[in-house]
Each structure stands twice: as C-alpha cells, then as structure tokens.
Design a protein around this nucleic acid. Sequence first.
DNA 1: CTGTTAGCGCCTTCAT
DNA 2: ATGAAGGCGCTAACAG
Lengths: 338, 338
Amino acid sequence: MKAVKRPTIKEIARKLRISPSTVSRALHDHPSIGLVTTMRVKKLAEELNYEPNQTAIFFKQRKTFTIAVVLPSLSEPFFSVAISEIENIANARDYTVIMGQTLDDEQRERRIIETLKAHRVDGIIVSMGKNTSDYGFIDILKNAGIPVVFFDCVPDLPNENRIVSNLRTGMLEAIATFHAKGHQKIGLINGPSQLPASKEREMAFRHGFAIHKLLYEEQYVVHSDLSRSGNIQAIEKLLSLPERPSALICFNDYVTLDVMKAVREKGLVINQDIYFISFANYPLWQHMDNPPMASIEQFPDKQGAKAAEVLFDLIDNKAEDMKPQYIVFESSLISHNF
Amino acid sequence: MKAVKRPTIKEIARKLRISPSTVSRALHDHPSIGLVTTMRVKKLAEELNYEPNQTAIFFKQRKTFTIAVVLPSLSEPFFSVAISEIENIANARDYTVIMGQTLDDEQRERRIIETLKAHRVDGIIVSMGKNTSDYGFIDILKNAGIPVVFFDCVPDLPNENRIVSNLRTGMLEAIATFHAKGHQKIGLINGPSQLPASKEREMAFRHGFAIHKLLYEEQYVVHSDLSRSGNIQAIEKLLSLPERPSALICFNDYVTLDVMKAVREKGLVINQDIYFISFANYPLWQHMDNPPMASIEQFPDKQGAKAAEVLFDLIDNKAEDMKPQYIVFESSLISHNF
DNA sequence: CTGTTAGCGCCTTCAT
DNA sequence: ATGAAGGCGCTAACAG
C-alpha cells in the first residue's frame, strides 16, 4: 500500500506536447477542441489510467458532492431505514453520504457538525438529539452557507426546513379504533414526560378522548423511562388500577414488547384480555404470532426520502431563496390482521 | 443560502500587513514566529471566524480523513450495528465515514467503489454483495493506493484483510446443546444453496453430526429462498417427514420468526414440541415471550470495530507493509433462558 | 481551434 | 523572526 503515482493532466499534456488546458477541455468534450486532438487525449488518458483528482476539483469548485446525515443512532431501525432511503437518493445523483451519530450527546453532536462543516459538505440532514437545547449550530451552518434540513426531531423554528411525522393522526385513529370496539378504559404508556415526543403523544391522546367523549382519567396515563424495568413498572401501575385498561397505546414497539411479555406473565391474553397499539419502530410484527392489534406507522423511509429531496432542492437552487419547507407526514394506523 | 465569503489566510495577512506564510505559521504555533505576531494573528482569525479550508488541505495533503463503508444494506440490523461501531471508532479519531449501500447489485457496488476512489477516501471497509463475482475492484483500489478491509462477506483471497465470523463454532455448540438434550432428529433450514453462507452452515452442520455420531439424513436439510413463503414451504417439508424434527436450526432470525409462526399454527408448542436455534440478526429475542432456545451470535459490533481498527492500522502504517490480517470471530451460542 | 496565464487556499522550502 | 516564491491539479478568462 505504498504511495502511488497517479497521472495528471499535465503529464498527458507533456507527453502529447500540447497544453494542459487543451487536455482538460478535450477530456470534457469541449466543442472548441478538434476531434483528433480530443481522441488522442482520451486515448492516452485511457492508457495511463488517468483519473481526475476529485479533491482538486472539490477545492476549485467549492463543492464536494457530499451530503451528511446526523442523527442520534445508526443502529436504531427507524433511522437506519431513513438512512437507507437517503443513501439511495444521493446515490442516484452521484452524491456521497457521510454519516454521523450523536448518541444523543449534545457535545458530540456539536463536534460532528463542526467536522462536517470543515469538510465542506454540500448539505446536512439532521435529526437532533433528545437533549439538544443549544441551536447555535444552525447559525454556524448558515454562516458557512451549508443548507440544512431537519427531520424527525426538529427544532421549533419556522424558518428551518423540517420534515416530521404527525403522531396525532395515528393516535386519533388508534383511539377511534379502540372506541369503535367498545373499549372505555384505554391506557397510555408514554415516554419520559419532558420529551417532546411524549408531550405530543399525550396531547393527541387527550384530544382523542375529547373527540369520542371518553372519560379522561389521569391514572391511565403512565410514564416510563423506556428502560425495560421502567416499562414493566409502568404496566404494573396500570394493571393495579381498580379497573385495569382493556386497551393500551404504547410509546413505541420496544415498550410494547416488554409490556406484552409482562402482561402474559400475569396470565392475561393478548388480543383478548388486553389489546395493544404502539408507535412503530420495528418492521417485525408481520412475523409474529400474536402481534399488537395495530401499529402507528411513521414512515421513516418516506421521511428520509423527502428530507433528501428537499436538501437537494436547496443545493440546486442555492442562488434563489426557497421558502422554508415544513412537511408533515401523517402517521397512520396499520392493522395487523384483526 | 447565498454564497458566503469565508476569510482566508491571505485576508488575515493583508489586514495585518504581514505575509500569508507568517499567518499560516502563526496559526500552527510555529516556534519561529514571535509571540506578539502569533497572538495578533490568532486574535484576528478568531474575530473573522477564520477556518482553514479543509478541501484545500485535503488537496494538498493527499488525504481526506474519510473512510468509507460499503455493504449490501444500511437498514439490515446486522450491518447497522456494525456501522454504528465503525462510526464510533472513526469519530474518535476525527475521521468521517461515508456509507454506500450496494443492495447486492454488483453494478452498483462497482459504481460506488469508483466514486469513493474518486473522492480519495483514505480507506474502505467492504462487505461484498451476495452476487459479486468480479473482484476486479480490488486491484483498482490497490492501484489507487486505497487500503481495503473486508468483513462479513469476504473474498476468498489470502492476501486481503478479512474479518469474518466463524459460523462453525456456533453451529457446533448448537448441535452439542441439542444432542445433550437428547434430540436425535435435528433439522436445518438453510438459505439458497449457492450462497457461501449456506454452504458454510451446511458443512458445519454435517460436521456436528459427525462429532456426535448422529445419523445424518439428507431430508432433514431443506433450503429456503428466505422469502416468507419460501420459509413456510421449508418448514412444511420438514413437518411432513415421517418423523418430524424435534429441533431446528435456522438460517437466520427472520426465517425463525416465520417458521415459529407456521409451527404454532399447526398446533405445536415452541420449546416443547420443537426447539429452535438460529443465527442472529435481530437484537430482539430478549423482549419476547417465547423465544428460540438460543441464538448463534455473530457479534456484528465486534466485527465492525475490528474492521475499523485494522483499517486504521493500515492507514497509519501506510509506509511499512503489514501482513494481511485474517481475523475470525468465533460465533457463539447465546442461550435465551432455558 | 489551441496556448498562456492566473488563481482557488494552503503549506513549505529558500532567502533574508 | 519574517517574507517571497512556488506548487498541489484543475479550470477558465483571455489571447491569439
């Protein structure tokens, strides 16, 4: 793996006793270069295995044909599905994709973004960490002229490009479904109360109750820190209520898995004594024997694709001013064969 | 997002009426620059928000501080876990990671690798596509002086750096476990027979039978194309045998999920009438109620980490010749509480 | 049609 | 302790 001599335009020029610019133009099929010259140049280039030095081009063109995706975790299915779509779209345009995972660590997020700025990526897609409170990085990127598109976890700033899913619609569908089946005691196992994602769920949950004129009772909404034991504590709280819920909406699939297991261990039967709907992270229920009644799908693939499209619009239209996009994907209920 | 004026060394030099080289040196704390000058330079640089143009530096240094990871799918849990580790290690060294997904398409794989070469990444980690037969890209990268580390799906070439998991050990453990519990009729639901991954499983499976002096019968080994219906056909073939297997080893977790479901629908009880062990893709069984008896874990996280480490060794030792590394991670059986 | 020149931003001899 | 000059590889404005 030693250093390697790579042919340059100059070399070709020297060997052909013509000027480098002629070579450059010939390689780009510039109309003003004679056919013969062009052919000779291309032939020699081929022979020498010439390849343009992109780093030189990036440097000169002030463009790297690279976008970056920054998000909390690369191994989380929701994100990896989104990433996969983003890579697809970028790949189709011959762009390259850099990944950065923040692990919900604000420092690390900041460092990653600085690095990407230094790398002069042409654009960034960001899903912010749970704890990110300092939005300073946005201005930093603005000043650097790097377009940003947020998705999933986005800042509450109307001037930013944001792609999000609306949990409300799915939540309302879930409650409507439960209500239609006659459930009165519907529980919610939510995430940590300070999380925006939790707040949104709770708001929608209450809204659903209002719509269907269901009696809203505080004690049917419990919080979990999303750890396994937290999830189990949460369900135990609900099961110990004088009248236990007959239907449950869970923060996400992981919670549901833990909770279903705990519920079964109590001797209750899923989809009989107690029904489940949860927000989807895992593309897995289809394989399972006794899955929740339904999932609230957030379409990470579509969100990722859209984020990429918006970003490329920004990159292409760099000159003109595009209005900040705010795109909402309605979540929706996917039934699991019930 | 209009063009942005970014300060350069020249600008600082002009404003300070000193030469660009002095500025450059001052910014690098070069000892030969006077303390005062250095301070003045740094102060102004700070004020102007000066930042070195990495693309210029990449260009000059012939180094991009970027590695690439090329693999079949970004959304596949096995890979996304590996990626996550790779990103971690790269991030710790202030390297950036480019992702390319080949979707098992050889053309696309080739194109991606060409692009990465053009981008002058400092190294590449590759898990080849299922169908890749033309290893020409290896020489292309060699000629470009780009170090490569293969992992998971690697070419059968002793001169390449390869990180793999040895399925054999896990498979043997699985058979030993089943044998110890008295199972005689052990089935294997394998993948497509032309896949190396399938061949390896079958070899190990036979080996296990030999070790334990079990009677090997062809009909207990069936193949699935890994589609859902393929999986179901496979299990049906096994269940219709005169004496159905009491224990099953499956190609991977997806197969197991489908098969377990089908088995339950036949009225058989998992972990009673029939036991399962499968190769792990999903970090999920821990949540489930009635998981397979065990999984054969391949440690994608460790493999990813190791691949990154080897790659960085190559990058750092570019000069000296490192022997090609061939590192095998023994797969091993992880019991699910039985 | 082709060559000359200059410069992108930085670093690095070589001078002074 | 500082400056001047040149070059990395490529492109483009400006000459012919």
